[in-house]
């Protein structure tokens, strides 16, 4: 069953089309990543899904309910970690969680929520003294208080150090394993690749790539790169290569096989392929490829303005 259903959703601010006719579904108990550059429409999409914004057209259903019309009911079953939202600076992290428990039916104990977010040591610290990453964790603690069925995470690990980020990934994985549906936006492609089973990449309000993470990546090419030996011309290589300075790059559906071919060819000639790197397709490659395509498309059309 789909926990989140988005059907031909559109939203504009003045003449700026923030979200442009997008549709997707998120199956219950899965992690779905929404990716894209700044201004691509990710946050507007989350705000539409959580009922903070009203769509111009199209529909959203979260657990079968309309997030605007059935707001109280939806809010009772979802946790929302906003990208930008304030805290009361003079309250401590612990006091903040305690106060939020009053707003949350059947809330977790404050200590459990703080522990899940890795903030136990900061329970008595005033919010104004927390670092950016610690505030994100407090945000997560509040989102998890009501044991939500659906969790919306808008850039959950921004500003966190790598260790804290990995801890949060563990929490998200654990929640997903207990059949919480998670929709997250992120700038960190590794994060999406680590956590999500499905993805949608947005660009200028539209979904340009979407679907199963593994299938999406499998459909992309990997690459082999190495320093071209000085005695060799690019045309002499057994596979077509593009050059960046002295670096030769070979794109191939199966980069391991391409690397074997190149190494065999080099050893027959007594050559060494210095700095050899074999990379399977990553989300980063896909993202950069789309960004390049997007820029090319944008250069050919009129500027659509910046995010309001």
């Amino acid at each position: 069953m789909a926990a989140i259903q988005v059907n031909h959703l559109s939203k504009s601010y003045g003449s700026f089309q923030a979200v442009d006719d997008i549709s997707f579904e998120v199956e219950a108990g899965t992690v779905f990543a929404l990716l894209g550059r700044n201004g691509a429409g990710k946050t507007t999409t989350i705000e539409l899904l959580t009922g903070f914004q009203k769509p111009d057209s199209g529909s959203v259903r979260v657990l079968g309910l309309d997030p605007i019309r059935d707001r109280a009911q939806v809010r009772g079953n979802v946790g929302i970690m906003l990208q930008e939202a304030g805290f009361f600076p003079d309250l401590t992290a612990g006091q903040t969680v305690e106060i939020w428990r009053d707003f949350t039916p059947a809330a977790r104990p404050a200590s459990e929520a703080l522990e899940l977010a890795g903030l136990t040591a900061k329970a008595k610290t005033k919010v104004r003294q927390l670092s950016g990453g610690e505030k994100r964790r407090l945000d997560l603690a509040l989102a998890l208080l009501g044991r939500p069925d659906v969790l919306f995470l808008d850039e959950p690990t921004t500003g966190m150090d790598p260790e804290a980020r990995r801890n949060i990934w563990e929490v998200v994985r654990d929640l997903a394993a207990r059949s919480t549906t998670v929709l997250l936006t992120t700038h960190y492609l590794e994060e999406a690749q680590q956590l999500a089973t499905n993805l949608a990449i947005m660009d200028r309000g539209q979904i340009v790539v979407g679907g199963d993470m593994a299938e999406t990546l499998a459909a992309r090419v990997g690459r082999v790169s190495f320093e071209l030996p000085s005695v060799i011309q690019p045309g002499e290589l057994p596979l077509p290569a593009t050059m960046r300075g002295r670096l030769a790059m070979v794109q191939a559906a199966d980069p391991d096989l391409a690397a074997q071919t190149l190494l065999g060819w080099a050893s027959e000639r007594g050559l060494r392929l210095r700095g050899l790197e074999v990379r399977t397709a990553s989300l980063e490659d896909l993202f950069l490829e789309l960004a390049q395509n997007g820029e090319m498309a944008q250069n050919g059309t009129t500027d659509r303005g910046d995010h309001p």
């Binding site: 959580t50 903070f52 707001r71 109280a72 809010r75 009772g76 929302i80 906003l82 930008e84 939202a85 304030g86 805290f87 009361f88 939020w100 707003f103 949350t104 039916p105 509040l142 009501g146």
Partner: peptide, 17 residues
């Protein structure tokens, strides 16, 4: 102030009407 600091927004992320 609470509106500008997005505290009202945060309160609206809860079940409160």
């Amino acid at each position: 102030m609470r509106r500008d600091q997005l505290l009202l927004k945060r309160l609206r992320a809860t079940r409160l009407t």
